[in-house]
């Protein structure tokens, strides 16, 4: 059961990673990437690393996304 949870989560993470790479709209890519951070946070938590999970939730899902969004705001939204 526990192994199954990890496997499903890993499959989900790989899918999300592929979606991020495929997205042509950088805004969409940044938002999906925050979902990747959230999934990774769950995985850390389930593997028994709550410290890393907290950092991942705050940095990966929160702060990085905001910085990406601001960076997209000052440069451009479409991939050339």
């Amino acid at each position: 059961m526990s192994e199954l949870f990890d496997l499903v989560l890993l499959a989900l993470l790989i899918t999300i990673a592929l979606l991020v790479v495929r997205a042509r709209d950088l805004l969409v890519a940044a938002i999906i990437f925050s979902g990747y951070g959230l999934g990774l946070c769950l995985l850390w938590l389930h593997r028994g690393a709550p410290d890393v999970a907290m950092a991942e939730a705050a940095v990966g899902a929160g702060v990085t996304t905001v910085l990406f969004l601001v960076a997209i705001g000052v440069t451009g939204r479409k991939e050339k």
């Binding site: 410290d51 999970a53 907290m54 950092a55 705050a58 940095v59 929160g62 702060v63």
Partner: peptide
């Protein structure tokens, strides 16, 4: 307990943003 300066600091920074 789990947590610490880095984690709490990121939460504080996100709140500030």
């Amino acid at each position: 307990s789990p947590g610490g300066g880095f984690q709490g600091g990121m939460i504080l920074g996100a709140l500030f943003i």
